[in-house]
Amino acid sequence: MVFSHSDDIWTQCPELVAGVLFARGINTRASVSAQLARFSATAEARMNGGIESALPEVQAWRRVFAKMGLQPTKYRCASEALLRRLRKENALPRLHPLVDLCNAISAAFAIPIAVFDLSKVTGDMQVRHATGSESYHNSSGQLEHPEPQEVIYTDQGGNAHARRWTNRQSSLSAVSAGTHSVMIVAEALHESAHEDIRTLLAALMQEVALAWPASASKARLLTRAAPRFDYTPAD
């Protein structure tokens, strides 16, 4: 499959840097407790008793959300929502070893990370503006349609796998007990995004290999100059 951002997205957000990792051999048997504790501690140390909205990574996403006409306190990027929960509850949600790991890394870097079950994705996936005809399944499994021009993740089957860019993922491609192959995407727009996404990708590769030694993965950094990742399982 091919993962990309549309030309319009790159035009509107030329500072965007994305990291994409494809992995297969995922299961629920991995133990990630030590990793979660380590990355959660990093996240808490970064906030140092402050609030998540003060972090430059979060501020950059707040500016983009404001440009999209979204209220920053009503619609938060995924990393801000995780950090807010960590600050208020001193814990992150536990759902699936891979999702839990990605959430902890997301909090540590303050960068949104999305994880998609590839068996639920039809053809290529692109981040682009919605037409309004795409189908999105909310957390309850109910069908919604994104607003026209809303930034979404969408595949060739007309499925919207995330709404409001990095705000909310679809339940359709959520990782579950039967998930084997995944695509993981991290996106940032702050000043040091290029360096930070590169570091985050390296951490993801290392931690996934540690938790799932039999897994196989391939990662790539995407920028406006190199905006596409064409992946096949044989890569």
Score class of each variant (00 low, 15 high):
R94L: 07
R94D: 14
H96S: 00
P97G: 05
P97D: 08
D100R: 03
N103C: 05
N103H: 11
S106L: 02
A107R: 01
A107N: 03
F109M: 09
F109P: 14
F109T: 12
F109V: 06
I111D: 03
P112N: 01
P112E: 04
P112I: 06
P112L: 01
I113E: 04
V115G: 01
D117S: 09
S119A: 13
S119K: 12
S119V: 10
V121F: 00
V121W: 00
T122I: 11
T122N: 13
T122C: 13
D124V: 02
D124S: 11
D124I: 04
M125E: 02
M125Q: 12
Q126I: 09
Q126G: 10
V127N: 05
R128I: 09
A130P: 10
A130V: 13
A130T: 10
T131P: 06
G132W: 06
G132P: 08
G132S: 05
S133W: 02
S133F: 12
S133Q: 10
S133C: 09
E134V: 04
E134K: 05
E134G: 07
S135N: 14
Y136I: 03
H137W: 14
H137T: 12
N138M: 01
N138Y: 02
S140R: 09
G141H: 07
G141C: 09
G141T: 11
G141S: 11
G141P: 09
Q142Y: 12
E144S: 05
E144F: 13
H145Y: 05
P146K: 05
P146A: 04
P146R: 01
E147I: 10
E147T: 13
E147L: 15
P148Y: 04
P148V: 04
P148W: 04
Q149A: 11
Q149T: 11
E150W: 03
E150C: 13
E150L: 12
E150H: 10
V151F: 06
I152F: 09
Y153T: 08
Y153Q: 11
Y153H: 10
Y153C: 13
D155I: 06
D155Q: 11
G157W: 01
N159H: 11
A160H: 05
H161A: 09
H161W: 06
H161L: 09
A162H: 04
W165M: 11
W165A: 10
T166Q: 15
T166R: 06
T166L: 08
N167C: 13
R168E: 14
R168N: 10
Q169G: 15
S170W: 00
S170E: 06
S171N: 12
L172I: 09
L172A: 14
S173C: 10
S173E: 10
S173M: 11
S173Q: 09
S173V: 12
A174L: 08
A174M: 15
V175K: 02
V175A: 00
S176G: 14
S176V: 13
S176D: 08
S176K: 15
A177T: 15
A177R: 15
A177E: 15
A177M: 11
A177K: 13
G178R: 03
G178W: 04
G178P: 07
H180Q: 15
H180N: 12
H180V: 15
S181C: 12
S181I: 08
V182C: 01
M183F: 00
M183R: 02
I184R: 00
V185T: 07
V185E: 05
E187C: 08
E187F: 00
A188H: 08
A188W: 00
H190Y: 01
E191D: 13
E191R: 14
